[in-house]
């Protein structure tokens, strides 16, 4: 099978095999294709080291919204994922970490009760096992279908980040395309170090909403990783082929900060 697709950025034809070899980054122009959770874990974790936890958590229909249950089932079938985030433990270049990977393919990576719970559990797992927590974000924001419960997940994940901070265990965020809305306005902006993949859309309000407010087109590159770096909201832009080594660098440089316990 040698399927070839046109790169959405440079429009050149790149075969699937080549794309895979380059970690789904266009070898011609550097465009970062979206990854699902499985692909991301494969690229980041040491081979065979990833052990998923909280996999059994499954969404309910808390505000009894028509069609939500079907929508969930449909997404579960299409994505072969249970929810929009996968969490687990792994090693990266031999160092232990808690890893959470969001997937935009599952209902736009939206955060409902399960996503909020899994992110919270991941942070607490990191605190208890004294392992850095690494979260890859990709989300359109809060999951409207869960009403107020989805909004409250912002508070829940942010308070978990507050607790994690107090235990002295580091939180590393990797913002990937796109990260917007309630995820940006909660744990995604609370990392001790915040990395972004090149060219990712990162913001609170979506571009169309802002255009509606200001009544004109947004400038080129608005809300992209490079823009957020310039505005001071991300620490570094790291291309995909350097992510593993940069993350392991951060893990190696963030040890021994655990708060002393009273005897």
């Amino acid at each position: 099978m040698h399927k070839a697709e046109n790169c959405p950025a440079c429009h050149r034809q790149v075969s699937d095999d080549v794309l895979k070899k380059y970690q789904m980054v266009c070898p011609e122009c550097g465009f970062h294709h979206r990854l699902d959770a499985a692909q991301r874990i494969e690229q980041i974790a040491d081979a065979g080291s990833f052990k998923e936890f909280s996999a059994e958590l499954c969404s309910k229909n808390p505000i009894e919204l028509d069609g939500y249950a079907e929508k969930l089932r449909q997404n579960q079938k299409q994505s072969s994922m249970n929810e929009a985030v996968v969490t687990g433990t792994c090693t990266i270049e031999g160092l232990g970490a808690v890893l959470a990977v969001m997937s935009f393919d599952f209902m736009g990576g939206s955060m409902g009760s399960v996503v909020g719970e899994k992110i919270t559990q991941a942070m607490f797992q990191g605190a208890l096992s004294d392992s850095p927590v690494i979260i890859f974000t990709a989300s359109g924001g809060a999951r409207m279908q869960e009403g107020i419960f989805s909004l409250m997940q912002m508070a829940k994940t942010a308070s978990a980040a507050a607790l994690l901070e107090q235990t002295g265990v580091p939180l590393f965020i990797v913002l990937t395309h796109p990260t917007t809305g309630g995820v940006t306005a909660s744990f995604a902006m609370l990392g001790d170090v915040i990395i972004a993949e090149p060219g990712a859309l990162i913001g609170f309000a979506g571009p169309r909403v802002i255009e509606g407010t200001i009544g004109q087109k947004l400038p080129e590159g608005f809300q992209k990783s490079e823009f957020q770096l310039k505005k001071g909201f991300v620490d570094a832009i790291v291309p995909r082929d350097k992510l593993r080594t940069q993350l392991s660098f951060l893990m190696r440089t963030h040890v021994g900060v655990k708060h002393e316990q009273d005897a």
Binding site: C58, S59, P62, S113, E117, Q153, A155, K156
Partner: peptide, 10 residues
């Protein structure tokens, strides 16, 4: 805050 959320398998 931590207790807010509706899901199966808590």
């Amino acid at each position: 805050i931590r207790g807010i959320g509706e899901f199966e398998g808590s």
